[in-house]
Design a binder for these strands. Structure first.
Lengths: 189, 189
DNA sequence: ATCATTTGCCTAAAAACTTTAGGCAAATGC
DNA sequence: GCATTTGCCTAAAGTTTTTAGGCAAATGAT
């Protein structure tokens, strides 16, 4: 009986790869066990249950996204920063569709609190420092940017913008132009 | 042996109710059979498979949403129309979270073609008639509005905006003000 | 009204996934 | 070298999906 060296870390990591290959909803404890050439029950020493695995993948994706965002924002401000962060989300979703889907998982309040969620809103707030917004408008703008990034990326991932002109990249650029213009000229109530 | 009168219609309808009650991913052929107090295999005379049920719920939700949208747009134009359609999505998601989740299901190309998807983009285009946009900017704007509506509603549904000031309704209003301003002043490339 | 046909829900059964319980052997530590 | 811990195992029960074939109820023709 050879020990493969399973750990929660490795399982979550492999689960994330599996998600990118076959889709997040196809990620199962059984499939993961097959991938390690190990019996299913063995995974339950490292995972509480299958939900635990999915939550782990979601948290991993949120961390990776936040790391990429932080790297992209370093040394940038204003529209430059806006575009950089927006592209982090879009590119990550394109590279890692399964992980991106995982990041959309409805987390329990505890898991959400332990997640990189707050790093994400902090990054968006950082971008807004380049614009002239004060509270509560800044919060409104944080929510708008989150909505556009997430909404656009998930519609694009769902194939909503393919097979029709103009191409998606063109729209993306123009939408970011639009958001920049809007943030520079945020209407009073 | 009493006949319950199962039909694909009734099953999809009940599946939609189930989705709203327990969440779309908890919708299963077994659960549906229990709800009708009928054996599971009996449903397979009316449903090709479990994916078929989910697709049916998604198509139902897209139709219902399009119907509500059409009703809301009747007799409205400009910002008034924008707000009306936006609220259709938001209110529908609040009333029918399971159906709304279903509407996000990745459809096969055939199912997508048979869906109310095109009605949705047509409605958004109708709104833009009140603004001064020509192609391809109109398409960019259609995609922006779709992204914001979908993005905001799903983040809100995921609980992203609860438990923090300002409240979600306030942000929603201000975002729609912002979109209206942006559409009236869409930046050139 | 009777009989044939169709239809609707049934039982049975196989395959896949989830999860728990308990066991043995390998790794670890004294 | 031995005791303990740890890691992966077998076994087994429960749930879901899906197919195949059967019987009874509804439908419709004579």
């Amino acid at each position: 009986m050879v020990r493969v060296g399973l750990t929660t870390e490795r399982l979550v990591q492999a689960g994330a790869e599996l998600a990118d290959e076959v889709g997040f909803d196809q990620v199962t404890v059984s499939a993961l066990a097959r991938r390690f050439d190990v019996k299913v029950a063995s995974l339950y020493s490292h995972l509480k249950n299958s939900q635990d695995l999915k939550t782990g993948i979601a948290l991993l994706a949120l961390e990776e996204l936040a790391d990429r965002g932080a790297a992209a924002l370093a040394g940038r401000a204003g529209k430059d920063a806006l575009i950089a962060l927006a592209n982090v989300y879009r590119d990550y979703a394109a590279e890692h569709p399964g992980r991106y889907a995982a990041a959309q998982l409805r987390l329990t309040p505890e898991a959400a609190a332990a997640s990189a969620g707050s790093r994400h809103s902090q990054m968006t707030r950082a971008i807004l420092r380049g614009y002239d917004l004060t509270e509560p408008d800044q919060t409104h703008a944080v929510r708008l940017l989150g909505s556009v990034f997430h909404g656009y990326v998930s519609l694009e991932l769902a194939g909503g913008f393919s097979h029709s002109a103009p191409d998606s990249q063109e729209t993306w650029t123009r939408i970011l132009d639009g958001l920049d213009a809007l943030l520079r000229n945020w209407p009073a109530p």
